[in-house]
Write a protein that binds this DNA or RNA. Sequence first.
RNA 1: GCGAAAGUGGCGGAAUUGGCAGACGCGCUGGACUUAGGAUCCAGUCCCGCAAGGGGUGGGGGUUCAACUCCCCCCUUUCGCACCA
Length: 941
Amino acid sequence: MPRYDPHSIEPRWQEYWERNKTFRAVEDTSKPKLYVLDMFPYPSGEGLHVGHPEGYTATDMYTRYQRMRGFNVLHPMGYDAFGLPAEQYAIETGTHPGATTERNIANIRRQIKRLGFSYDWDRELATTDTDYVRWTQWIFLLMYETWFDPDAEWTDPDGRRRRGRGRPIDELPVPPGVRAQGEESVRRHRDLFRLAYQAEAPVNWCAALGTVLADEEVINGRSERGNHPVQRLPLRQWMLRITSYADRLVEDLDTVQWPEPIKEMQRNWVGRSEGAEVDFFAGEPGPDYAEWRAARSRRGYPDQPDALSIRIYTTRPDTLFGATYMVLAPEHPLVDRLTSPERKQEVDAYRQRVAAMSEEDRITGRGEKSGVFTGGYATNPVTDEMIPIWIADYVLISYGTGAIMAVPGHDQRDFEFANKFGLPIRAVVMPPQSWLQKMQVRQEDYAGRIGSLSEAFVDEGQGMQSENEDVSLDGLPTPEAKKAITRWLGESGLGTAAVKYKLRDWLFSRQRYWGEPIPILHELDADGKPSDLTVPVPDAELPVTLPEMEDFKPTGHPGGPLEKAVSWVHTRVDGREMRRETNTMPQWAGSCWYYLRFCDPRNETLAWDPAKERHWMPVDLYVGGAEHAVLHLLYARFWHKVLFDRGKVSTMEPFRRLINQGMILSITYRTAEGRIVPYTKIDFHEGKAIHTETGEELSGETEKMSKSRGNVIPVDVPLQQYGADTTRLYEMFMGPIEDTKPWSMQGVEGISRFLNRAWRMIVDEDADELRLNSKVVPPSGPEGEPTLEQLRTLNKTLKAVTADLEALRFNTAISRLMEFVNFFTAQKARPAVCMERFVLMLSPLAPHLAEELWLAMGHSDSLAGARWPDFEEQYTRDDMMEVPVQINGRLRARLLASSSASREELEQAALSDPKIRKHLENSAIRKVIVVPGKLVNIVAG
RNA sequence: GCGAAAGUGGCGGAAUUGGCAGACGCGCUGGACUUAGGAUCCAGUCCCGCAAGGGGUGGGGGUUCAACUCCCCCCUUUCGCACCA
């Protein structure tokens, strides 16, 4: 075997690893454990392009390295296989989504295996496997059987006191009044608190997809998949109470090693804000108002607003004196009551117009404020002024209380609205000088000119014009003013401190076929219609599998396609007729817990064995794309916390460390007319891209890979041309994992050359069979002892590569190995000891080649079990070094000096250097800075 | 608009704590070997300059003996969020 031939080497070693189950993970308590996980792929019909395996390559190199370091490694792979594309394809062609999915999985499995990754294939799973679906449904039912107790106090595994946790639904306190009304009443009470519950909610209805979508799946009013318009509709849906976990989802971010931007995105998504709720009297000042106020002072602030009040939420209670009008969301339930008869027509028209608007229209219409006056008035509780109540679509029903106090002086939206509709604007916060200067207004003119300024002052300042008989905020800095007014509101029974979140509960139903059926049965009423009472599918009957169907088309109404499977829908439990839930789970469900199933994937009686979960969890390193920063990662964390609260898992967070691989871009080549030219028709020559047919020189641009651009590079392309090791190395050599970087076919060539050079450094290329290069000398032979220089190169490389692999800096590790090969290729005698260490260093990166070289060096078994070589510190340092000498920070000379030379010696040597003396001829030395082992800098002038 | 990240040769990128900017690779130039080279090997390659020397890490300012690195202002690009009171 003379030449390096990856196409013969690679399949051979892949078979060897597979046959010997080299990478099977077996719990071994004698070693430290390491769980390294890739975000598993969705098996699309297109297969993988070169961007997909970037993360897989990094984790493979890392786990191969850590196995050599003695870790007990779990490194599995699977498929996130439910989802819309297979179903859309089914609708178009009639092919069962299961068949499509299976075919796609087979293709992706082939591609992944071809890259020689060290997964434990015995743990492979797909979220569509029936024995996986079973446990996905089991977790759903666990949520159904859980309520969140916000007052429960407990101590977390880190020893901190915490508040709020999920508990079994049987432990939910039932008020005696409810219990007295019987079992059905108790059930309804429980249904109000379950983590998985049904609710009539305004949902994102996508007519084109025939389904409801989660907020996260809607981008700018259009569906994330397919870019179809989305409308708001009220529908009865399954929801998961993720909002109960909002605080814990934010707090526990501090305990994980994730990229700060991702943590920030999650915090923003949860969107916690602190402020106050305030009740406004829904009427004019007068005797009724006085009576209401008196009652409030006596009884305090109620949990639910009384019939006479409008409850608002604000983050700026300190601006209460500036509230000159109120706005309710058009959907707010009080609107009808507050609207005066003469305004009714206009109000109704506005509400209808808003309701009919698509999400997209709402977004594009944003900025230009719209709204109508209801004719109703409220009373500002600190000024006792009568203020008008408006409705406007800039107030959202789904956030806070769906109503606001408008403070046009200090809120940009209110400011625009007030200016448009001529509402009064009052200054109640004095801005700092810098802002006044920017707006070109003097402090004494601020209050008078506030309405004519170009924008509102919305930051913190000092209270002004905020005083009545009871309370004064004048002169108080904003934080103090907030405290003062909140205290006053509490004492007056008008308000209380409150926390709100942008995060909404997770809409969990999909009107789709290709998903996990929601394992719930609806009880039927006397007429045989589904009542609102539900029971879980009994554990013994899980999983609920999808019925065989031929027509997968969306029905266009809330039942979804499963409604059509009549015999499946109707079932009986204990002789009672029941109707199955026909909605399915969203695609996110399966990926919420696959990392747990990987701990014990073949368990038939449990989702996982607790001992195995304790052994492997948490995931020590999780690698995947940043596109999952909020969706998948937030959902999975939520499920995990519920499982934790219910004692099913031992850790509070699933993923200890997270790394986001950057996107891999592609270079798109176009003709002068802008037509895209595929790679197969381009000749790369003299740094140019030449069209093979026309000879035209093409211009290349770095762009995102996409089908429409025709610049997708399937991973099979480099695999076929160069093999797995070259593909793997190039994936990493391009740059740091987390960076976005372009794939260059010419760059791959360089890696291929490197591996060829490494091959020839060790193997005799002219021999007929695998034989060592004659320059490789055994330890016993002449020149078999490495020279000092060789030892230094070897040990410096070892030290650097070890540090690089620890830190997942594969690009620089590869550079180091290139330098090693460059050095040793120039050596006439290459001691076998050095070559062997090199092969071990190369093995996590280019495992097939390394195995073959290992064989060439006379080993009979795989090097997968070999130990990572240690370096000797003494050989990582040189005794002599070049010391740069600067004058005023400019390099003027280099000295050759002992590495251990003292400050004085270096200064002496520098000052006596002829070049330096020449430069210093006409100037006086002021100071000499010597950094031993680094440089000398002479300050002169 | 808000939030975050990033700007280094023709290109991808290197540069522990502030200490020789441009490692390694691509591309390019010259040479060797060769029937041939888009294989391989050797040499060169930040910019200006024959050289001495000078300039240089998006732009401007600052701290420092010394700044790609730290601070301030600005510009550009990418990503995320987007009427969340």
